[in-house]
Amino acid sequence: MLVLLPPSETKAPGGDGAPLDLEALSSPELTPVRTELTKTLADLAADVPASRAALGLSRKQDDEIGRNAALFTSPTMPALERYTGVLYDALDVRSLTRGQRARADRRLAVGSALFGLVRGTDAIPAYRLSAGSALPGQPTLRALWKPVLGPVLAAVDELVVDLRSGSYAALAPVPGAVTVDVLSERPDGSRSVVSHFNKAHKGRIARLLATTTAEPGDVVRLRALLRRAGLHVEHDGGTALTLVVPAEHATR
């Protein structure tokens, strides 16, 4: 089972790993695009106003541009520890046992605008680049990534659970992947889409899938696994699942 996670805008600072080695990252087929984007982003950092415009940053976020300037020299850390925020707080990889962490590193991968796809143990620096960013002189990120990342994901010979947000899933859709929508249900039975806290619920799902000893091979077995964990999961056919959360729990 491969679980695809979205990245986060926020990144943990620092690290104790050696500087970025693009050729050491998993999925070496992605190295040429990774190299092009990383060099472009690092060079762009020399022009602060252009970086702000391309990355959608304010003056108060100039430290993010500084991170990009140091892409090839700053320390690295494992990808699952680099990304922070609501989803990654719920995933909480640092609290996993050694065996659970080994499964998480094997099963979890993060969609990245800069690196395309990183596995849990891939050593990466802090950076700033979003799926919707437009780098000067470059095609759209989707145009760059889809031709090379698409085949890599299509070649995965196991169940793929795609928890990426829409903009990152669009970089390289995975035909046949299981997706999960999160809905809030009120006492009167009416439902609405969970927005911000959608990330927390997907983080909990990711933690469950990262640590279970089960190996669901299709959407039906995955649904059964989630239901055994006490989640209210609906399946109306196809590869889409719906997690229904009581309204009073939707913001937790």
Results as ranks from 00 to 15, higher is better:
residue 228 R to L: 12
residue 193 V to S: 14
residue 23 E to V: 07
residue 184 S to T: 09
residue 198 N to P: 15
residue 164 R to Q: 07
residue 15 G to L: 06
residue 191 R to Q: 02
residue 186 R to E: 15
residue 106 R to T: 13
residue 88 Y to W: 02
residue 70 A to C: 06
residue 68 N to I: 02
residue 233 V to Q: 03
residue 53 A to E: 14
residue 140 T to N: 04
residue 121 T to V: 14
residue 194 V to Q: 03
residue 66 G to P: 01
residue 101 R to D: 08
residue 11 K to N: 03
residue 156 V to E: 14
residue 205 I to P: 01
residue 164 R to A: 03
residue 41 L to K: 04
residue 7 P to E: 12
residue 70 A to L: 11
residue 130 S to Q: 13
residue 22 L to Y: 01
residue 233 V to Y: 01
residue 178 V to W: 04
residue 9 E to H: 10
residue 59 R to T: 14
residue 117 L to Q: 08
residue 92 D to K: 05
residue 141 L to W: 04
residue 150 G to S: 10
residue 204 R to F: 07
residue 2 L to T: 13
residue 201 H to Y: 01
residue 126 A to Y: 05
residue 152 V to Y: 10
residue 91 L to F: 11
residue 82 R to N: 06
residue 179 T to H: 11
residue 78 P to W: 00
residue 46 A to H: 15
residue 209 L to G: 04
residue 48 V to M: 13
residue 152 V to A: 11
residue 93 V to M: 02
residue 163 L to V: 04
residue 71 L to K: 00
residue 170 A to W: 09
residue 63 D to A: 15
residue 45 A to Q: 00
residue 214 A to L: 07
residue 79 A to F: 07
residue 164 R to E: 06
residue 152 V to H: 01
residue 175 P to C: 04
residue 164 R to V: 02
residue 165 S to K: 07
residue 13 P to C: 10
residue 244 V to C: 00
residue 216 P to Q: 05
residue 17 G to H: 02
residue 94 R to K: 13
residue 38 T to F: 08
residue 36 E to Y: 10
residue 32 P to I: 03
residue 238 G to F: 06
residue 83 Y to E: 03
residue 51 S to I: 01
residue 33 V to I: 12
residue 73 T to D: 10
residue 230 G to I: 10
residue 24 A to D: 04
residue 148 V to H: 10
residue 235 H to R: 12
residue 156 V to W: 03
residue 18 A to W: 05
residue 71 L to Y: 01
residue 214 A to D: 14
residue 196 H to D: 13
residue 15 G to N: 08
residue 203 G to H: 00
residue 139 P to Y: 08
residue 213 T to V: 15
residue 77 M to K: 10
residue 26 S to M: 02
residue 12 A to S: 14
residue 87 L to N: 02
residue 46 A to T: 14
residue 3 V to R: 03
residue 221 R to K: 14
residue 169 A to G: 12
residue 170 A to E: 08
residue 39 K to M: 14
residue 8 S to I: 07
residue 208 L to M: 12
residue 82 R to T: 06
residue 19 P to S: 05
residue 168 Y to E: 02
residue 138 Q to V: 07
residue 30 L to E: 02
residue 229 A to G: 04
residue 33 V to P: 00
residue 112 S to N: 09
residue 198 N to T: 13
residue 112 S to K: 00
residue 167 S to E: 15
residue 186 R to I: 12
residue 96 L to T: 08
residue 115 F to L: 08
residue 103 R to V: 03
residue 187 P to C: 08
residue 137 G to E: 09
residue 149 L to F: 05
residue 6 P to S: 15
residue 92 D to A: 13
residue 209 L to K: 06
residue 229 A to N: 11
residue 185 E to A: 10
residue 166 G to H: 13
residue 136 P to M: 09
residue 33 V to C: 09
residue 166 G to M: 10
residue 193 V to K: 15
residue 211 T to S: 13
residue 84 T to V: 12
